[in-house]
């Protein structure tokens, strides 16, 4: 499995780019900027759902979300570049596995929001509070993205050997 991931990285030129002197730090910078875009848009919208800054219309603030999605894709692309260049550093790392789990929860939470609550929230007046379900979704989203950031930082500092991995 490791060989095929590494083979993909080498075949696509990702490996060569990431091993240039500026490749890895440049990808990390883009990864962090994407993360800031995500927190500055989705995170701010979550805080608004939780009741911060009453007076800002939910629909207005929601217009920022596409920018957050752009930040998310910046993160996915650079994340794939990290992962495929050094798969052994990530695949067996519990911090990485936990990070992906929180990303999955955040994704499911977002789907729940758009299928059950989004329309109602956008119609809510700027001075009213949103339903409890929307606030719970905001809290889960914010907590998940904070956990994703924390686990992302821990990947660098916590690299147990492969045989510690419970599932591989």
């Amino acid at each position: 499995m490791l060989e095929s991931i590494l083979g993909f990285s080498q075949a696509t030129g990702i490996y060569a780019f990431m091993n240039t002197p500026w490749g890895w730090p440049l990808a990390e910078s883009i990864h962090f900027i994407g993360l800031c875009l995500l927190i500055g848009t989705v995170g701010v919208f979550d805080l608004r759902l939780l009741g911060m800054a009453p007076g800002v219309a939910f629909a207005d603030l929601h217009r920022l979300v596409p920018l957050g999605v752009a930040g998310y894709f910046m993160n996915v692309i650079t994340g794939v570049m990290f992962f495929t260049t050094a798969p052994d550093q990530y695949l067996f790392n519990p911090a990485f596995q936990t990070k992906l789990s929180f990303m999955l929860i955040a994704g499911v939470n977002m789907l729940v929001f758009y299928t059950t609550t989004s329309a109602e929230v956008k119609r809510t007046s700027a001075v009213l509070v949103v339903p409890v379900r929307a606030r719970a979704i905001g809290a889960i989203s914010l907590a998940c993205w904070c956990a994703v950031i924390i686990c992302g930082r821990l990947i660098t500092y916590y690299r147990p050997p492969y045989y510690w991995c419970a599932w591989c």
Binding site: L38, I39, G40, T41, G43, V44
Partner: peptide
Amino acid sequence: MAFVVGINIA
């Protein structure tokens, strides 16, 4: 950092 930069970006 993400909160400071994120809020400023918004």
